[in-house]
């Protein structure tokens, strides 16, 4: 139709914000609250949504996704909780060490890859560690609509139990916390057994926990549609490699500590993305030519795609070898 052709920019729409509160919760986790710089209300969001936080770290732009954990009904703030990762790529350290109240930052509009199934007769949440954040928003949303939910939350120690006390106090009959240092384990098999038809379970936490919930549920005859999970992968460092981008007609170098997507962006290529964590599928890129091995780390492509050598998700996956040419 071309009524007014406008090329979509990569990523979701952006919102200029000011840091309104920095609240350390324990040794590892700090909450950051944001107000809109223009004073307006934030867009409403659905529980489970994330925002991509743009960090200006010197001349480097970092883009990290974090679950929105504030109450979706409160349009005056957006809040995220960030776990410090001393071995990570530096985004969480930047948030913890550099970000102060009053700083100007940029968030994207909410994107939801982990939404509630509103048909569910009951919602059962399994959280591990910082995986509690999306459930904070889900609980707030379900409380407003009288939803039927319960939370099972595994933490390392009471001192690191982010929001554990707050949630337990607010919903003593619905929140169950399990502490590793007291040898408490989520009784998953018992919990999966006996749930009414139409129950949906949601899991957010370490990879091992997500796999455990999926596998146990499948073994108990649960349909895969009733088991939801979200895991953002952080790109892992790896050997530098060279990539030819044939549409853009340039050859770029991917450094040890940057992702292929980040390298493309650094070189001015407007590559599509949403989650930057291997989950949403937006950055899927066709491989034109490859001589070497792919290091696929995404959750988007299936095994067949991975084996085909015809596609790559540049947000988390890498390449080791002689030649890589991409259709970008």
């Amino acid at each position: 139709m071309s009524a007014a052709p406008q090329k979509a920019k990569a990523g979701a729409e952006k919102i200029a914000v000011t840091v309104s509160a920095v609240v350390p919760l324990n040794d590892l986790v700090t909450r950051f609250e944001f107000k809109r710089t223009d004073g307006a209300e934030f867009p409403p969001f659905s529980a489970g949504a994330h925002t991509v936080v743009e960090m200006q770290d010197g001349d480097r732009t970092r883009l990290n996704p974090y679950s929105l954990m504030s109450d979706p009904a409160d349009r005056s703030i957006y809040a995220i909780s960030v776990r410090r990762d001393d071995q990570g790529r530096g985004g969480s350290l930047f948030m913890h060490q550099k970000v102060k109240v009053g700083d100007a930052m940029t968030l994207t509009y909410p994107v939801n890859l982990f939404s509630l199934d509103l048909r569910a007769k009951k919602h059962v949440f399994f959280a591990g560690g910082i995986g509690i954040t999306p459930f904070k928003a889900m609980i707030a949303q379900l409380e407003q609509s009288n939803g039927n939910w319960e939370l099972h939350y595994a933490c390392r120690t009471p001192a690191l139990g982010t929001y554990a006390d707050e949630l337990t106090n607010a919903y003593p009959n619905k929140v169950h916390v399990y502490y590793d240092d007291q040898n408490q384990v989520i009784p998953l098999e018992d919990l999966l057994d006996g749930q009414p038809l139409g129950t949906h379970v949601y899991v957010c936490g370490p990879t091992g926990m997500i796999d455990w919930v999926h596998a146990t549920a499948a073994a108990h005859g649960w349909p895969s549609e009733n088991v939801h999970s979200e895991e953002f992968l952080a790109p892992q460092p790896g050997k530098p490699f060279e990539v030819r981008l044939c549409q853009s007609d340039i050859t770029i170098q991917v450094g040890e500590h940057e992702s292929l997507l980040e390298a493309m962006e650094r070189c001015g290529v407007d590559a599509p993305f949403l989650c930057r964590g291997g989950a949403c599928g937006q950055c899927e890129t066709d491989v034109v030519e490859a001589e070497g091995d792919f290091v696929h780390r995404d959750h988007w492509l299936d095994d067949e795609d991975h084996a085909s050598g015809k596609k790559i998700m540049p947000c988390v996956s890498r390449f080791v070898g002689k030649t890589l040419v991409l259709d970008r």
Partner: peptide, 10 residues
């Protein structure tokens, strides 16, 4: 039967 059933019913 369905109303009394639990998740995992085949």
């Amino acid at each position: 039967v369905l109303g009394d059933a639990h998740m995992g019913l085949q």
